[in-house]
């Protein structure tokens, strides 16, 4: 049985020249959990995500994926580990020149040796899992915002990932559509046992589905709290975290207005 930690981040730091974006961020993500990376705007949430999915090399620190040092691996090995990742970008990032079905099929065509019939069957089942069973032939531009997110989720599922990364999955969606997407994420996690990492500041979504998380602070550029979002809301001693989780202004709010 492998370790119960799917992802371990130790002492992660990211900087560009003299600018420090993140310092000394450490956390562990249990296999099969839904983990939230929280924090206000500009605190480096997306930077953590980029370091985890291989888009941004950290300046210090170690990221272990399933026990393996991700950034110490060579490019080929890192790409291989990355095939176990499914990523849902903030605006879907669907390839607009291809139909929805081709969007899902492309990773299967490029990265597996499956024949077209098998790919077609897999694409069908993945689209039906996200509720887009009949939409394979449509172009991304013809879809609504919620449907685009679902199509992008089907694409993220293309290679049956071990870890799903979500960058602000519910941003730009109305509450009902956002709730549907949350439920879908839960169903997929329960069904496949996938580990889910989501960057979000959508409170209902955080309280609704996340088991664990960290809270990054824009001032100190590091994590100032960790735990399940609901726990942070009820028990965290940090005034800013409490304020964030309850959508209040912090007691020492220096800014006159946002």
């Amino acid at each position: 049985m492998p370790s119960r930690w799917k992802l371990q981040v130790e002492g992660l730091a990211v900087g560009f020249g003299d600018v420090v974006v993140l310092r000394d961020v450490s956390f562990r993500i249990a296999a099969g959990s839904i983990f939230a990376v929280m924090g206000g705007s500009g605190c480096g949430k997306s930077t953590v995500l980029k370091a985890m999915i291989g888009l941004l090399r950290p300046s210090a620190g170690v990221i272990h994926v399933g026990g393996e040092d991700y950034w110490a691996a060579d490019d080929a090995r890192r790409a291989e580990i990355g095939r176990g990742f499914g990523i849902l970008f903030q605006n879907g990032a669907l390839w607009n020149s291809m139909s929805v079905a081709d969007n899902v099929a492309l990773p299967l065509r490029m990265l597996t040796r499956l024949d077209e019939a098998a790919i077609a069957a897999l694409v069908r089942v993945k689209l039906s899992l996200v509720g887009l069973g009949g939409a394979g032939g449509t172009m991304p531009a013809e879809l609504s915002g919620g449907m685009r997110k679902r199509a992008a989720l089907a694409r993220a599922l293309a290679l049956d990932p071990d870890i799903l990364f979500f960058d602000e999955p519910t941003s730009g969606l109305d509450p009902v559509t956002a709730k549907r997407l949350d439920d879908l994420i839960l169903e997929l996690r329960d069904g496949f046992g996938t580990t889910v990492v989501m960057v979000s500041h959508d409170l209902p979504s955080l309280f609704g589905i996340c088991d664990d998380g960290i809270f990054l602070d824009a001032g100190s550029r590091t994590a100032i709290a960790s735990g399940a979002p609901a726990m942070l809301r009820d028990q965290c001693q940090q005034p800013f975290v409490r304020a964030f989780m309850t959508r209040e202004r912090p007691p020492d709010d220096g800014e006159a207005s946002p």
Binding site: S128, L129, L132, G133, G134, L188, G191
Partner: peptide
């Protein structure tokens, strides 16, 4: 649960 999810879906 996944099978329930994979039911024929919304018309496009």
């Amino acid at each position: 649960r996944l099978l329930a999810l994979a039911s024929p879906a919304v018309p496009v």
